[in-house]
């Protein structure tokens, strides 16, 4: 419930500041927010777009790509469910088809030489295999790969979540006067800042 309190505090800050000026913030901003992906994950809901095998692969990939460390990982906050939701509701038919094809091919690329499936490997092995595919995708002659498209989606899904933006990174709802030159030490967290647009 800590998250809800943060949200409430932040909204109160904005509303209080705006009301000093004699105005009220839009009522819609005060509605309670509940992430659909988080609740789907909590309830163990079936995927809306992927089939069971595809979803199992996505689930393993997000967990290996952004694991739990001292902070929550992608799996714990339901990134696999959010990716599924994006594919079901946001993506064009062309992108949906690209994901189906891409996942099929990725499943092959991620197999161990002896044919063992990625989802059945031990976690350390999964990391090694994923690292190899990742390195190949960023090689000079790799061109546009589905893997990079998927990685963009996973990173977006993780860091634009509430936990990603406000706990893994830092988020200022009301920055206030610009602090132009702060001295920071090595463990400072980066700002979450999406900018205007993000190409998925």
């Amino acid at each position: 419930m800590r998250d809800d309190r943060n949200l409430l505090t932040r909204r109160k800050a904005i509303q209080g500041a705006a009301s000093l000026l004699g105005g009220a913030i839009a009522a819609t901003q005060l509605s309670t927010f509940m992430s659909r992906a988080a609740s789907a994950a909590a309830a163990g809901e079936p995927p809306a777009f992927f089939d069971a095998d595809q979803f199992a692969l996505i689930e393993r990939i997000v967990d290996v790509m952004i694991p739990e460390t001292a902070t929550p990982g992608a799996h714990a906050i339901g990134v696999h469910h959010f990716v599924d939701l994006m594919l079901a509701e946001w993506a064009s038919p062309e992108r949906q088809a690209r994901y189906v094809r891409g996942l099929e091919q990725l499943d092959t690329e991620l197999k161990r030489p002896d044919g063992e499936s990625f989802v059945d490997l031990a976690p350390e092995e999964q990391l090694d295999v994923l690292r190899a595919v990742d390195a190949a995708a960023y090689a000079d002659n790799a061109g546009d790969t589905f893997f990079v498209e998927l990685k963009k989606m996973v990173l977006f899904s993780f860091y634009s979540s509430e936990i990603g933006a406000t706990e893994e990174l830092q988020y200022e709802a009301l920055p206030g006067p610009y602090k132009h030159c702060m001295s920071v030490d090595e463990d400072v967290r980066a700002w979450f800042d999406l900018g205007f647009t993000y190409g998925l």
């Binding site: 913030i25 901003q29 509701e89 509430e162």
Partner: peptide
């Protein structure tokens, strides 16, 4: 105004179609 990306259904992205 004032919303975080996580408060929008697609985090600021608009359905492609």
């Amino acid at each position: 105004e004032g919303k975080g990306n996580w408060e929008l259904p697609y985090r600021g992205q608009i359905p492609e179609q």
